[in-house]
């Protein structure tokens, strides 16, 4: 799961203090990114051709249950002339369909709206992952 645990944090702080900088350098060179592929659903968007970070695991139903999200268009929103249409939802569409529509926008602007959507809400609700590595996990153990 994406949620970190406090127990882990405690252990790792100790690691952080112990490992010297040199160890880091050596570690870095030896790390091999291994993704354990399975039935984990990831956030996908066909606009991301060469992702720079690992994909984000997202369990849709569990997340919404935990977060108490009932309305689809809380996330799958539709805007018209700058106003959110309360009766419409964009379920089934890719974010990039709207958010990359403008010629001035590039992948980084699409990243922006994803981040604002997920992390923005997490920050507002004081729950869920907020740091880069908490969502874009190199492996899921």
């Amino acid at each position: 799961m994406v949620v970190y645990s406090e127990k882990e944090t405690g252990v790792e702080t100790k690691h952080l203090l112990m490992l010297p900088a040199i160890g880091l350098v050596i570690l870095a060179l030896s790390v091999i990114a291994a993704y354990s592929q399975g039935d984990i659903p990831f956030v996908k968007d066909s606009a991301f051709e060469n992702p720079r970070r690992p994909p984000v695991a997202f369990y849709h139903d569990e997340h919404n249950e935990k977060a108490g999200l009932l309305e689809c268009n809380g996330c799958h929103h539709v805007y018209e002339n700058g106003k959110k249409l309360e009766s419409s939802a964009s379920v089934g569409m890719e974010c990039s369909q709207c958010h990359l529509a403008s010629e001035n926008n590039s992948a980084i602007d699409l990243i922006r709206v994803y981040h604002l959507q997920c992390r923005g809400c997490h920050l507002k609700k004081n729950a869920g992952p907020i740091l880069c590595g908490q969502c874009h996990q190199k492996n899921d153990n």
Partner: peptide
């Protein structure tokens, strides 16, 4: 001077404790 780079590297590579590293 070294600190932000060590912690940044740590956080990017998601070594154990990378959340703490990110804050640091």
């Amino acid at each position: 001077v070294a600190a932000p780079f060590v912690t940044g590297f740590w956080s990017y590579h998601q070594y154990p404790g990378h959340e703490t590293a990110a804050i640091l």
